[in-house]
Design a protein around this nucleic acid. Structure first.
Lengths: 228, 228
DNA sequence: AATGCTACTGCCAGAAACTGTCAGTAGGCT
DNA sequence: AGCCTACTGACAGTTTCTGGCAGTAGCATT
């Protein structure tokens, strides 16, 4: 197997394990000696892969993804730039920061002329400044990703405060507000919750009993709202 | 020089030339024999680089960019996905298609579990369906990129049709409309033009005498509208 | 039609890089 | 203290890469 392919295989193998893996195991799985494995790890790290190794423990890959080299057309780059810019402007603080970071990473590897074009791009996003949310939406996104139940304290239209347990499966970014879509245990039905009306919430340890994707599909069928 | 670095150098060299370059020239610039250069070209092509070679002509790199391998965090991937999705939904047809393509390319190289998460992502974009434009905005974007003058036939608020020559330097995507920002020769000042009020336009061969970036900066200073 | 320039492929020997083995240092866990 | 682990250096064998050569074929100009 060619070296470059082997490195991708190694990365894939590392991803499979959630706990630290010893170099010996990785070496056997990729069919290579331990010495070479150490060299491969070093090679991946020098290319930006976030692999951490500790003596007595093993290797672990920080969550995230390594993209192999790929080609984007001018339009595609422009779309990525514009999209990231919109994210940076119209979503919650943490996701916005991630959008800015991603943009910076891409800009760093583009030729100088194109980098300048990005800094002062031909495409501009104009959106009303979004309303601020008290709730930490990055936490909510994590709950959605990991399919965790959420204990929600919510103020409805009339200002009445209620507490309920929900199964959040999607987060919608609309022109001027963020909406959490969830199954509501209280109502035994799908409910939408505006982020700016959330008084407080806590992510519970318990996973909800259904798959997020299935919930989203069912909701889509019921509500008939396009969301692609 | 390591092979992988050399390939990136070759790509960079290819970008510098706008006309077809012979393999011999490229071989000398990258400090390698002609035979090896042919191998390098083949290697780049197999990695997705859009390099075209014709006997008797030379090599030419189609516009676009090759991203080297790089690492994105979970949040950054999510930001890119959400951004592309917004682009696919809220901009003109061609840019929207580019956004979808870029998303597909990224999805194709992510591990299966993550691909599924993208298909039915935890983040959803909700935007009012945009109004349709008669004008082909991809042409306008190209005019902006190449700093070409544009002959514009425009209907103003009162429905009065006028024709003027403008120097377009930016395209803004707002909640419900697209706005072309330009220097207007008729008024000798900056003007905004709503895309849905454009009756017709033609990209002229003549380049306008100022740099797009400079115009954008000046406009920004004058209007004081944040656009980052 | 002829000539010159070019892309592209196969072959082979020398050069370079990679790989495995061995030995040794150092940090974390029980 | 003992075990597991990451990590580094040295060296020989192996593999891959590279350059030169020869040959085929497409494009443009004369």
């Amino acid at each position: 197997m060619a070296r470059s392919e082997r490195l991708l295989t190694l990365l894939q193998t590392l991803r499979r394990y959630r706990r630290p893996v010893s170099g010996a195991v990785l070496a056997e799985e990729t069919g290579v000696s331990l010495r070479t494995l150490y060299r491969d790890i070093a090679s991946l790290q020098s290319q930006g892969a976030m692999i951490e190794g500790e003596p007595g423990i093993g290797y672990i890959l920080k969550p995230g993804f390594m993209l192999p080299p790929m080609m984007f057309s001018q339009d595609e780059i422009e779309a990525l730039v514009l999209g990231s810019r919109w994210v940076a402007r119209a979503t919650d603080a943490r996701l916005a920061a991630a959008g800015t970071d991603a943009l910076a990473k891409i800009a760093a590897v583009l030729p100088a002329e194109m980098r300048e074009a990005i800094d002062q791009a031909a495409v501009v996003v104009g959106t009303r400044r979004i309303t601020e949310d008290k709730a930490d939406l990055s936490l909510m996104r994590k709950a959605i990703r990991t399919e965790r139940m959420v204990q929600l304290t919510y103020g409805d239209v009339n200002g009445a405060i209620s507490t309920r347990r929900i199964w959040p499966f999607a987060l919608g970014y609309f022109d001027n507000s963020r909406i959490i879509m969830a199954w509501c245990e209280l109502r035994q039905d799908f409910r939408h919750f505006r982020a700016d009306r959330i008084v407080d919430f806590a992510v519970l340890e318990a996973r909800y009993p259904r798959r997020r994707v299935a919930l989203a599909r069912e909701w889509q069928a019921k509500e008939g709202i396009a969301h692609t």
